[in-house]
Amino acid sequence: MTNPRLLVSASPHLHGPDSTAAIMWSVVGSLVPVVGAAVWFFGPTALLVVLACVAGALLPERLMGTPGSLKDGSAAITGILLALSLPPGIALWMAFVGGAFAISAGKLVFGGLGKNVFNPALLGRAFLQAAFPVALTTWPKPGGDFLALRGDTFSFPFTSAGVDTVTAATPLGAMKFGHASTPLTDLLLGTTGGCLGETSALLLLVCAGWLAYRGFLNWRTPVAVLGSVALFSGVLFAIDAARFPSPLFMLFSGGLMLGALFMATDMVTSPVTHGGCWIFGAGIGALVVLIRVWGGLAEGVMYAILLMNAMVPFIDRVTQPRVFGTGRPARTSGGAP
């Protein structure tokens, strides 16, 4: 018997079924129904916004990312998540610029996948909010003519076509600036004004639940976010029910569900330890209540998550696992995460 050509490799020689690409494309898959719901509520415009953001995200990844990095699906996720955090009537060129900014300044400058500190989609949104504050706060009313455009979708860059559209305040805006409450069933089903993805809380819960079941999402983070929002707003509601919104309203309105379930759980920008996820989530929840109730903005999920993203290396450091047989956690040494 002659020696066959043999591979010589280090142990282990078996590998589990998961891969980075499988995780990322599962997240994309879980967002498909959410995009579908956005199309249902806001018409084909919603789909155009999603496509514009994804195209904007893929372009710099293709030009500047490591070869083949498009296949891992992470740039597509950033594009879709960014689109879901935008108003349906936004001009497509703005959506495209947002996607390109999210990937280039939010991810590639840090060194690509796994190296970024901040959630790229939220960074893209923060950029758009700073650059185009009016476009980012114009909320078309859901329903109406399915095929109608919801804003100046096809306007040229830096011009305004000024298409008339029926707008409506978001439930949070109505609460903050008009002290008007929205029925809970509308919030659950999504028949309210708002971003593409901040409409049906129920659908978001189902999609994220599937991801958590597959082990691709640490359920502790959203539970901690929602729990701490419920706790803090519940305390405020108990103090003065007339001045502060009810915890249920806080939980199901605005971008909280989308943020807690899909943005805060981004693996790269959240803690690796379970204890860290609890702290991280609780911090986001507290900041959301703080910004919504006392801040100048109606919505605070974006800044809450971005601020807590910055805390992740410190959270990781104080929540190191306790090494077997020592009774104390491992010391971590300083430096970048």
Partner: peptide, 11 residues
Amino acid sequence: ARPCIRCGHCL
């Protein structure tokens, strides 16, 4: 090998 995505599965 691809970049670490900090999923925490190894922990």
